[in-house]
């Protein structure tokens, strides 16, 4: 896939140990610009841990992570976001008691300039900036999901599950990321909602053509349809890599995870 383009993200022999448990072992993965990478594996195989490593929530025991060619090991999560890595969480982590709109505005935190002293002494500037952010957030919601626009002054906790997922993706997109990490976006969704989710992911690509996406997903239909390339991990190690059709042929994958009837 696009070997002339430099890799957006690259991990080299990435390893993390929690006490005696090796959650990720010598993982080499790379994702190019504009690519959608599917990350699959059985429960507990280390997929979410991998995302936590990339976003700086965990620090690797050894190995290296390169983002745009530069090592980002030890960079804290808030700085990773500013570099352009945004994520969603397996179990929604929305700001439950804040409005839908506020949730998206917080995604734009790093692009706003006003500080507390502006709010106190130059409240006009602080207010204007917040209103502009609200307008941008509204545009994003409009593009992405008209349902959310109607409920923009609802608390996030009042939304149905599928809308919460959408809102979380919107919040991540609000930061204008180069790399978007989706942790099981289709979990708990019915087929119709899943179909919509895939449409939404295409919408993201349309809106931001140079965005790269890593999707963790158990729903093989989602992976088959949207992923350009798939990495399979088991027990923290990569066991296969390639297009969906290719990994379906891998005996190791069949054995570890997919089972015969899935392919």
């Amino acid at each position: 896939m696009g070997s002339n383009l430099p890799y957006l993200l690259e991990t080299k022999d990435l390893t993390i140990r929690f006490g005696g448990l090796v959650a990720i072992k010598d993982l080499n993965a790379r994702i190019g610009q504009q690519e959608i990478l599917g990350l699959i594996g059985p429960n507990g195989s280390g997929k979410t841990t991998f995302l936590n490593l990339i976003t700086g929530i965990y620090k690797p025991t050894s190995g290296n992570i390169l983002f745009q060619g530069r090592s980002v090991v030890g960079v804290p999560p808030f700085r990773m976001l500013r570099k352009g890595v945004a994520r969603t969480f397996q179990n929604n982590r929305l700001f439950s008691n804040l409005s839908v709109l506020d949730n998206v505005i917080i995604g734009m935190h790093h692009k706003q300039r006003s500080q507390w002293y502006h709010a106190v002494f130059r409240s006009g500037f602080a207010r204007r900036e917040l209103r502009e952010a609200a307008q941008k957030a509204l545009n994003l919601l409009e593009f992405f999901s008209p349902d959310l626009v109607d409920g923009r002054y609802k608390k996030a906790i009042e939304l149905p599950q599928a809308h919460r997922r959408k809102l979380e993706i919107c919040r991540a997109l609000a930061s204008d990321p180069l790399l978007l990490l989706l942790d099981e976006p289709a979990a708990g969704m019915d087929p119709e909602e899943t179909r919509q989710l895939m449409e939404d992911i295409r919408k993201i690509q349309k809106r931001k053509p140079d965005i790269a996406i890593i999707v963790i997903e158990h729903d093989m239909n989602v992976i088959r349809i949207i992923a350009d390339r798939v990495i399979v991990i088991n027990h923290g190690q990569k066991i296969a890599e390639g297009s969906f059709a290719e990994i379906c042929q891998e005996p190791a994958v069949l054995e570890a995870y997919l089972g015969e009837e899935s392919c």
């Binding site: 929530i57 808030f78 976001l81 500013r82 994520r87 969480f89 700001f95 917080i106 995604g107 919040r171």
Partner: peptide
């Protein structure tokens, strides 16, 4: 945690 991952 979500706040941290939102760049705060």
């Amino acid at each position: 945690i979500a706040a941290r991952c939102a760049g705060i």
